[in-house]
């Protein structure tokens, strides 16, 4: 049997309603990346992680389990699981299974982004434990009532903290806050920009020239919904890195398969495999700009090609 759509969506929506995130994590896990950076609390401009990078090690541990459940008799018990989850936060246990090395890896990417923004002389704060997940997955799955309530909660939190500008780190949070929130929250007028847009606009220059050869993987959401295509290329072009465009790129980029991970893991892996082959054809290490793309393509590549977050390359070239 395939994984039960109804029960899984139910668990995600219940979590968002009760615990303010589809996969609730502790404050410590959400803010660990910022240790030692001395980022000011709050402010008119904030760096907003939306928890996506921090969630990947947990999603990775979870998806390993879910793939085993797909087409197994256990799918019958997901309804029971949903009831249990109403009382016990099952994500907590999944969090315990997450790889510590992977957590460090994804925390480093967030640190890279914060340090790059500092290097570009951008004045920004961080909301620490007050930050909330954006609700993107629940919106995509069409659970609009839960999403609408959550969107209002997030908007109220911004208002309470006097936030006027948000710098996002991933395409899903960027799209949700910039394009979807104004449809659901009356009068939502917070300015939202991806860190790639902010860095490109800053005109910052790299410290060193690098000799990397990169096959660039555009995120569907950045490219097709948010028009973030040129900015990462502008930033990379200055570094001396050789950029290879895969057959499908920019506005016609090919999905990483990640959006199907929670409901149809084997289909998700099939799409990721197809995309990985296209990226390998163009040559060089793969550079991603979304944590979901990163984890999906890394798993599909199985070490046959290096897949890295763009922030790692930028951090090296721009000397942070």
């Amino acid at each position: 049997m395939p994984l039960p759509t109804k029960d899984i969506l139910g668990i995600l929506a219940d979590n968002l309603n009760q615990r303010k995130s589809v996969l609730p994590i502790s404050n410590a896990a959400a803010t660990r990346w910022s240790k030692g950076l001395d980022l000011p609390k709050g402010g008119k401009t904030v760096l907003y992680t939306g928890h996506l990078y921090q969630l990947i090690p947990i999603i990775d541990a979870m998806s390993g389990q879910m793939s085993k459940f797909e087409n197994s008799p256990i799918t019958k018990y997901f309804g029971l699981g949903r009831n249990v989850n109403k009382f016990i936060n099952m994500t907590f246990f999944m969090g315990m299974m997450a790889s510590k090395d992977e957590q460090k890896d994804y925390d480093r990417m967030l640190r890279n982004i914060a340090l790059l923004l500092k290097k570009a002389n951008i004045d920004f704060g961080y909301l620490y434990g007050e930050e909330l997940y954006s609700g993107a997955l629940v919106y995509d799955e069409g659970v609009d009532g839960s999403f609408a309530k959550h969107a209002q909660r997030v908007a109220d939190m911004f208002k309470k903290n006097g936030v006027e500008k948000i710098i996002t780190v991933d395409p899903h949070t960027t799209h949700t806050l910039r394009t979807v929130f104004p449809e659901f929250v009356k009068g939502f007028d917070v300015e939202v920009k991806s860190y790639l847009e902010v860095l490109a606009e800053s005109g910052m220059e790299p410290d060193t020239q690098i000799t990397d050869e990169l096959s660039i993987h555009d995120s569907c959401v950045y490219a097709r919904h948010e028009n973030v295509v040129d900015q990462p290329r502008q930033l990379l072009a200055k570094t001396g890195a050789k950029l290879n465009e895969p057959r499908l790129c920019g506005k016609n980029t090919h999905c990483c398969g990640g959006p199907l991970e929670s409901l149809f893991p084997s289909e998700s892996h099939r799409i990721a495999g197809n995309r990985t082959e296209q990226l390998k054809e163009s040559g060089g290490n793969v550079a991603t700009m979304c944590p979901i793309c990163l984890v999906s393509l890394r798993k599909a590549a199985k070490g046959s090609v290096k897949v890295n977050d763009l922030s790692d390359t930028l951090a090296r070239a721009y000397g942070v």
């Binding site: 759509t5 995509d140 799955e141 569907c220 097709r224 919904h225 506005k251 016609n252 090919h254 999905c255 398969g257 959006p259 199907l260 409901l263 149809f264 289909e267 799409i271």
Partner: peptide
């Protein structure tokens, strides 16, 4: 629910 919502179709 299997649609990726990737938007390749709408783009073209």
């Amino acid at each position: 629910y299997q649609c990726l919502l990737c938007g390749m179709c709408a783009e073209n």
